[in-house]
Design a protein around this nucleic acid. Structure first.
Length: 263
DNA sequence: ATGCCTTAATGTTTAAGA
């Protein structure tokens, strides 16, 4: 089973890229972030025509997440628990039945948190706490769980071309990285780091200053695996090639292959 | 150099992103 995540930076602007990539990558489950549209504006028909079930948690202009699945979604639950007043559309969890049990996939768009001297940074840290509480709860089930999305967290200096320039950024500040490590400490595995220690495994290149051409990238799109998912890990990939397409998203897709059998 | 692009929308400018 191939599970992928991609921050498309507007699904309507990126529809041609998305359809082309779906046909090439052939993922079974896809987590999309920054769809930047309401549910009724999501281009579901051409995606359904490729064999996907589609569930969305959209928002006007900003944020918005979606799950695409070749298999029926037994459940699809929007919103991360822990703050009923949080109106941002940043989370949707789906459940797919396996021959033995289920697999849970949480699609998330973690807050950016910049500028750090505003309310945006504490909002990010609170959101990360809520994600830890959610994960703690799910881990008790001992089911395969995948947290997939744009975490807006650079985990380590090897994940950024110029660590010093990012030292005080919300994506790389010590508090941010410590909170991410605490999430891993619950028992989650950073899939990419399970297969390589290499530096420069970037998933995002800024539109500005020729960042792509200079390979000034960062790794902020992640798939975190529970022990029951990590035990089934076969492969991990970063589809860097789509960043070279015309009018690309600033993020590229990341995927894992897991040896799980669908019911 | 805390913004050199890109996006959506109270649109001929602003806010947000990372």
């Amino acid at each position: 089973m191939r599970i992928a995540t991609w921050n498309v930076n507007s699904v309507r602007q990126r529809l041609d890229h998305l359809l082309t990539w779906l046909k090439e990558c052939r993922p079974d489950i896809v987590c999309l972030q920054e769809i930047k549209c309401m549910d009724d504006a999501f281009p579901r028909e051409p995606i359904e025509a490729l064999g996907y079930n589609v569930v969305t948690h959209g928002q006007k202009t900003f944020n918005g997440v979606a799950l695409l699945s070749k298999y029926p979604l037994d459940e699809a639950t929007p919103r991360l628990a822990g703050d009923d007043l949080d109106e941002h559309a940043r989370f949707i969890e789906g459940v797919v039945s396996l021959k033995s049990g289920v697999v849970r996939v949480a699609c998330l768009y973690l807050p950016n948190g910049n500028p750090v001297d505003t309310e945006k940074y504490p909002y990010k840290l609170r959101w990360m706490e809520r994600l830890r509480e959610f994960t703690k709860l799910r881990l008790k089930t001992e089911e395969p769980l995948i947290l997939a999305g744009d975490f807006n967290v650079i985990p380590h200096a090897r994940d950024v071309h110029n660590p010093a320039a990012w030292a005080n950024d919300a994506l790389f500040k010590p508090e941010t990285r410590e909170s991410f490590q605490a999430l891993l400490g619950l028992g989650m595995t950073d899939a990419l780091r399970a297969v390589t220690d290499d530096a420069g495994q970037y998933t995002f290149w800024d539109y500005q200053a020729g960042a792509w051409q200079k390979n000034w990238g960062i790794r902020i799109d992640h798939l975190l695996l529970s022990p029951q998912a990590s035990d089934r890990l076969v492969d991990v990939g970063i589809d860097k090639y789509v960043r070279a397409w015309e009018k690309p998203s600033d993020h590229v897709p990341v995927w894992v292959d897991l040896d799980l059998e669908v019911a």
